[in-house]
Design a protein around this nucleic acid. Structure first.
Length: 269
DNA sequence: ATGACTTCCTTAGGAAGA
C-alpha cells in the first residue's frame, strides 16, 4: 500500500455504536483504527462483525468504562504491549500498542481528570507522566511510530470554541497542557495542527447546550508522528458526518494519511 | 450552576464522561 490512513475514534460504547462503526468503516475504509471507550468486557468485543467488515483487531476491554482497541485492514496487528511500563498498578484499560505493516501504533485513552483538583486529576497527571517516559523511548526507538487517541487535553485556546466556560475543566489546566507541550518537545509532530495550520479544527462536541448544532467543539483527539513519519503526512481530517448521525458518539473519527511508498526498504540486504 | 445529555449497569438511580 502506498497510502496509509490511520484514524482514532472515541466511540463511547462499542455495543451501542456498532452499526455506526461499521457504517463508518465501510464508507471511509481506514487502514488502521484506534478505538477508545469501548465500555465493554473483552468477551463482548464484536470480533465477527469486524472480521466480516475486513478488519483484524486486538482489544483491551473492561466492564462499563474505558477500553481500547486497534483495528487493521488486511493485516493482523502484532501486539507489543498493553498498559504503560512502570504503571502496572493501573487498573484501567487505556493503552494498547501494536505493530501494523512496519509502523508502531500506540492507542491511548488518557484519563479525563475531572473534577480537579482531586484524586482523579492526580491520576490523570500520573498517567501522563508515565506516557511521557514511554513516549521518549518510542521516539528514539528508530522505528516509525504513531501515537493516536483521546488525550483529553485541549492543547491551546485555539483548540476550543471558547475557553471561558471550561477554565476550571481538567482538559484546559496548565498542568495538562504543560505535559502535552512536553510531549511535543520530545520531537513528535501534532499531525492535525501541522496540517491545518491556523484553521480551527474540532474532534469533540459535548451533548449539552446544542454544542454540535452551534459547532462549539474541542480538539482533544490527537495523532502524533515520529520524525521519520512527519515528512510523509499528506492529508488529515475529521469525519464530522459521523458526529451528525442520530445517536452519535460525542467524538468524531479523526484521521491522517501517510505516503509510505517512497523510501520503502527492500527485503534483501 | 451539585446544571445541561448520554451510556452503562441494572431495572430507579448512581457513576462517569468532558
Amino acid at each position: 500500500m502506498a497510502k496509509l490512513r490511520i484514524a482514532t475514534f472515541n466511540i463511547n460504547g462499542i455495543r451501542s455504536r456498532l452499526a455506526a462503526l461499521l457504517q463508518w468503516l465501510e464508507r471511509e475504509v481506514p487502514d488502521v483504527v484506534c478505538l477508545q471507550e469501548l465500555k465493554a468486557v473483552d468477551s463482548a468485543f464484536p470480533v465477527e462483525p469486524l472480521r466480516d467488515a475486513g478488519y483484524h483487531a486486538i482489544w483491551q476491554g473492561q466492564s462499563a468504562w474505558n477500553g481500547v482497541a486497534i483495528l487493521a485492514k488486511s493485516a493482523e496487528p502484532v501486539e507489543r504491549r498493553r498498559g504503560l511500563p512502570g504503571f502496572e498498578q493501573d487498573m484501567h484499560s487505556r493503552y494498547l500498542e501494536a505493530e501494523v505493516g512496519g509502523v508502531v501504533i500506540a492507542c491511548l485513552y488518557l484519563p479525563n481528570g475531572n473534577p480537579q483538583p482531586g484524586p482523579k486529576f492526580d491520576y490523570k497527571l500520573a498517567w501522563f507522566d508515565h506516557l511521557l517516559a514511554h513516549a521518549a523511548k518510542l521516539y528514539t526507538s528508530a522505528q516509525p511510530v504513531v501515537i493516536a487517541g483521546d488525550f483529553n487535553v485541549v492543547p491551546t485556546d485555539e483548540d476550543i470554541y471558547n475557553p471561558r466556560s471550561w477554565l476550571k475543566d481538567a482538559l484546559l489546566q496548565p498542568e495538562s497542557r504543560e505535559r502535552y507541550r512536553k510531549l511535543l518537545e520530545q520531537g513528535w509532530t501534532d499531525a492535525l495542527r501541522t496540517y491545518f495550520g491556523d484553521e480551527r479544527v474540532y474532534t469533540f462536541w459535548d451533548y449539552f447546550r446544542r454544542h454540535w448544532d452551534t459547532n462549539s467543539g474541542l480538539r482533544i483527539d490527537h495523532l502524533l508522528l515520529s520524525a521519520d513519519l512527519a515528512p510523509r503526512l499528506r492529508a488529515a481530517g475529521v469525519d464530522r458526518w459521523v458526529r451528525g448521525e442520530p445517536h452519535a458518539s460525542d467524538h468524531a473519527p479523526t484521521w491522517i494519511e501517510l505516503e509510505m511508498g517512497a523510501g520503502r526498504k527492500k527485503k534483501s540486504a
